[in-house]
Amino acid sequence: MNPRITMAVTGRVLSQLRRDHRTLAMLLVLPCLLMTLLWWMYNDSGPIFDRIGPALLAIFPFIVMFLVTSVTTLRERSSGTLERLLAMPMGKLDFLVGYAVAFGVVAALQSVLAVGVSVGLLGLEIVGHVWLLTLVAVVDATLGTALGLFVSAFARTEFQAVQFMPAIVVPQILLCGLLVPRDSMPDVLGAISDVLPLSYAVDAMTHLTVSSSAGEVWGDLVVVAAFVLAGLALGAATLRRRTA
């Protein structure tokens, strides 16, 4: 890896995003609007917003970053720019980490805004530290980026890439403990839930709503971070300098 090349990729991805006002607006505003919608839905139903709000703060950045990343990297593969870069002195990890850092920056902004709106305006009750909540959201977004990078290798078109969302993302949302607590699921599903990264992200968020002790949150974060690294490593393995 070469820091100059990695940062060149990050800088380029960020200037592309800066040009794309519509995508930028969607990335930054949409999670805030969705949290507001959720708050409104449960406005008359007691403390439900406080229970599921944090889980959704983990899920939104994950979904958005998964979609954005899988489509942009696929575009890079199909436009020929990836082939050109890999014929240059560009390491595979330079490319992937460059992307992950760029989208990590966007994810941090997105999470700060969504957490700010939820805690500041919508009165979401958090017992733990707010900064830790933001950190969990950023790591979740990076998880979405890493998985998005990985699946883009298995899609030939942007059309196919989008279809990976129901395949990879929706099962994780169903099994992460948002709908049914993870310990009340049938044993088999509980076991599956234990090996899905989003479960740990949501656990970390839920923990922050009920407790101010940070130990378990860090444990969950380490698991999610390990999945991020594994996703990047698998993504690097799917990048080929020589193709048919």
Binding site: R12, S15, Q16, R19, D20, S79, G80, T81, E83, R84, A87
Partner: peptide, 13 residues
């Protein structure tokens, strides 16, 4: 230096 038949540049830059 390699030029493919695709433009292989970023259209949004």
């Amino acid at each position: 230096g390699y030029v493919t038949q695709d433009s292989s540049v970023y259209l949004d830059l």
